[in-house]
Structures are given as C-alpha cells and as structure tokens.
C-alpha cells in the first residue's frame, strides 16, 4: 500500500483558455483532503489531470503511488463522484451494474444491491428519474461496489439540500474507517468540509494558494475586526477587507498580527472565511 494516495508536482495544464500553473500538493493515504476554491479556480481541471483524462503540459502526477499516465488498471481502485451522473440516462440502476461490472475485477454485486437498498434507491428506476441527491448516492454506490480505495469527489454537494450533504459526510466517515481509504473532495461549499477534512488545498486562478493540514491552515490566519477608523493603512497586510459604516473585517496572517494597529477583535477564522477572503477578487 502506497503511503501517498495522490501527489501532484509542478503540474501545468491547459484546458481551452484556462491554465493550471505549478500545482503541487499531495494527500497521504488514509485521510481526507478538501480541495477548495472559488468557481473556475481549476479544481475540475486538476481532477481531470489526476484521473488521466487530461494530459498536463508539465509536471508529475502520482495516483496511489504510481505515475500517471500509466496502466489504466490503476483506476480499478478509484471511484469518482461528480455533480452529475455519467451513465446513460435511460439505464435502470440494474443496467448500470450490468454495464460496469465487466470492467472491474472486484465488483461485488451483493454490495451494490445492499448499498442501493441502504441509500433508498430502487434498482428498477432509471438514472434520469433520480433526484440530485440520489444521483450522488448512485455514484457512491458504484464506487464502493468495486472496492475503490480512493474516492475523488468533484463538487458532489452542489445543488444538494443540507440533509443530503450531511448524509454524504456520514458516508465518507464510514468509508474512512479503513486506514487505506482516502478521499479527495473538491467543493466551493467549504462548510461541508469544516469538520472532517484532515488536509486542505486551496486553489485560485489555476494556482495553489495553500496546502497543509486543515488545523495548520486555520492557525495560519486570523480574522480581525475593528471599527470604521481602524486598519486604514493601505500597506496593512490584509486580505478580503470588508468595510461598512460600522466597522471593518479582514483576514490577516497570524504572523502579521503584530504589524496591525488598533483596538481589534481577533479570532480564529472558519475554513469558509479563509476561502472567501483569500478567494475573492482583490
């Protein structure tokens, strides 16, 4: 078992007019990485490179310890969940199994049936009849049925109600009770990850702004709030400063705190606040 579930080193890639530049991060096996950033930041492009669907212009990519592109059999161990299904709409859920099973050496039919049952999905239903939340569960059922060790989720919760989003967190928690299972969860809804992410990589405009354990990232920044006359110095090292008639709120590196003046309220930020303040337009 490889110690790293996935690794990208200095990856450059182009998709249309969009460019990824020098993307570097890795996820140790057995953990969850939140891959966060605003819409259009490059999350999907990065994931496509990771899965071998897009060839990078430069850099190295490793999946489950092996260089990508490589033997496609590597994907036997990878499950993918997106914000839309990638099956024939008119297939019934039983047809989905029939179509996919020949490709996976470890497909477990019993597991598929019991997962559908557990998720409340009727095998006789067609893919197009599923709600958004049910579609997500179908993709998870498929991924778990071939015993995937790495789950890659790209915006799985967009369009989902909070109940379904919470269910996903529960499903992932269960998936991670095995220490050789890893998850890459890309989203722009950071609240989903706030609690369960072990690692966070923050991407913006095709570049990685930060990649570390979630705790380290949260420790590296502070949210500061002051009155309308505070933090007016344009040279102050603030990010995402928001001014109103009653005050100002901004993000600052913990290391830069001492450089700020004024009677300020300082507190630890949430992951969401970091992404919003660092990800917004400057």
């Amino acid at each position: 078992m490889s110690k790293t579930a996935l690794a990208l080193r200095h990856v450059d890639a182009t998709r249309g007019t969009f460019h990824l530049r020098d993307v570097t991060f890795d996820l140790p096996t057995g953990y969850v990485m939140g891959f966060v950033g605003p819409n259009g930041a490059g999350k999907t492009t990065t994931i496509r490179c990771l899965l071998g669907m897009l060839r990078p212009d430069a850099g190295e990519i490793e999946l489950l310890g092996r260089r990508v592109p490589t033997d496609p059999d590597l994907l036997q161990d990878v499950g993918v969940v997106l914000d839309h299904t990638f099956f024939v709409d008119d297939w019934r859920l039983t047809d989905v199994e029939r179509a996919l099973r020949p490709f996976y050496g470890r497909w477990d039919s019993t597991r598929y049936r019991s997962l559908l049952d557990g998720f409340g999905l009727d095998p006789a239903h067609k893919v197009k009849e599923l709600s958004r939340g049910q579609s997500m569960k179908l993709m998870i059922a498929v991924a778990l049925s071939h015993d995937a060790r790495l789950l890659v989720l790209d915006e799985p919760t967009s369009g989902l109600d909070p109940v379904a989003r919470d269910e996903l967190v529960g499903i992932l928690g269960e998936f991670l009770t095995a220490d050789d299972h890893s998850v890459l969860f890309s989203t722009h809804i950071t609240t989903d990850l706030e609690r369960i992410a072990d690692y966070v990589t923050f991407i913006r405009d095709g570049q990685v702004m930060a990649s570390s354990t979630k705790d380290d990232l949260l420790d590296a920044y502070r949210l500061v709030r002051g009155g309308p006359d505070d933090l007016l110095d344009p040279a102050a090292p603030l990010a995402g400063a928001r001014r109103t008639s009653t005050g100002v709120e901004a993000l600052v590196r913990t290391a830069d705190l001492s450089r700020l003046e004024g009677n300020l309220l300082v507190e630890a930020p949430t992951l969401d606040q970091i992404v919003v303040k660092l990800g917004g337009a400057r």
């Binding site: 496509r48 899965l51 071998g52 669907m53 496609p72 059999d73 590597l74 994907l75 036997q76 990878v78 993918v80 997106l82 839309h84 299904t85 990638f86 099956f87 024939v88 709409d89 996919l100 490709f103 996976y104």
Partner: peptide, 18 residues
C-alpha cells in the same frame, strides 16, 4: 450521440480502459 448527451466521455475516463 448518447455519449454526448450523457457525458459518457467521463464514464470512459473513469473506467479502467485505454
């Protein structure tokens, strides 16, 4: 036609085949 309508290109990318 069906592949284009249902994003089967992603399915093909996910499946362990060349």
């Amino acid at each position: 036609a069906i592949a284009e309508k249902n994003d089967l290109d992603t399915l093909y990318g996910v499946l362990p085949i060349r």
